[in-house]
């Protein structure tokens, strides 16, 4: 590994340096991780959709797999990623434009409370519908 590459790895790992940090850095880290997760999901989603071009049998086999309990858990993880990234994104966009800076902690926890509520509802729907 070259010195330049080593430095890049070290800087990326700096994301995970949580020693002494508070909710703001957890929010920052989780936003990045969910962002990467959603990007990965988008690529997988496009790959799965390409099964449609391979015929009915392949698609039906995937749908059967998608209804398994493990897949449903992954669905809930996906919903968590969408909710967290979207709701925290609202805070970042508002505060980043100088709106509600003084109340940013309250905005964050209110949005997270809303997120937990929405996650509970959608999680229940995923397993019962």
């Amino acid at each position: 590994m070259t010195e330049h590459e080593e430095r890049r790895v070290r800087k990326t790992l700096a994301w995970l340096d949580m020693a002494g940090r508070k909710a703001g850095t957890w929010a920052f880290l989780l936003n990045r991780l969910t962002g990467l997760g959603l990007l990965l999901y988008l690529l997988l989603h496009l790959g799965v959709l390409s099964l449609l071009a391979m015929g009915e049998m392949q698609w039906d086999a995937f749908i059967a797999l998608a209804r398994s309990p493990l897949f449903l858990v992954l669905d809930v993880v996906l919903i968590f990623g969408i909710l967290y990234h979207g709701l925290n994104g609202i805070r970042v966009a508002l505060v980043g434009m100088g709106i509600g800076v003084r109340w940013q902690k309250g905005i964050f926890w209110t949005l997270m409370g809303l997120g937990v509520l929405l996650l509970a509802i959608t999680g229940w729907l995923v397993f019962t519908m």
Binding site: K22, G24, T25, N31, G96
Partner: peptide, 25 residues
């Protein structure tokens, strides 16, 4: 990236994060 850690640790209550947001606005 709006983590606000700077304002948490500032020993002089400068609140740099609020200043950055004001600058952006």
């Amino acid at each position: 990236h709006v983590a606000f850690e700077c304002s948490e640790v500032c020993p002089s209550n400068v609140d740099p994060a609020a200043a950055i947001m004001a600058l952006r606005q």
